[in-house]
């Protein structure tokens, strides 16, 4: 899963999609995951980073990450949601 390259993310957790004008806010861990996605990190790399930094188990990470990625997809922030027309 890749996040759109042009998504802007501020240090305050404000997420802006310049193609649609949509904006969202996310918490600290959401910001960290989006940053890692923007850097092209794999699911495994993100999981390792989160489990290392936060006091959580693998099952909880998988469940919450699944929800978060679904939310990103629903809001059309992931790649493949936009197609360029002629």
């Amino acid at each position: 899963m890749k996040i759109k390259k042009n998504i802007a993310l501020s240090d305050s957790g404000f997420v802006f999609d310049p193609a649609t004008g949509d904006s969202f806010t996310t918490n600290l861990i959401g910001m960290e995951i989006i940053k890692m996605l923007k850097d092209g990190k794999s699911h495994q790399e993100i999981k390792t980073a989160v489990l290392k930094k936060y006091l959580t188990d693998e099952a909880t990470f998988e469940k919450d990450n699944y929800d978060f990625i679904n939310m990103l997809t629903k809001h059309r922030l992931t790649d493949g949601d936009e197609k360029e027309k002629d």
Binding site: N6, P18, A19, T20, G21, E84, K85
Partner: peptide
């Protein structure tokens, strides 16, 4: 290009944002 963010009951944009839409 602009996307309306807040629309009045007359359908007019009360607020909007410039967007990057190449299409």
């Amino acid at each position: 290009p602009m996307r309306k963010q807040y629309i009045t009951d007359k359908g007019k944009a009360w607020s909007g944002i410039s967007i990057d839409d190449k299409n």
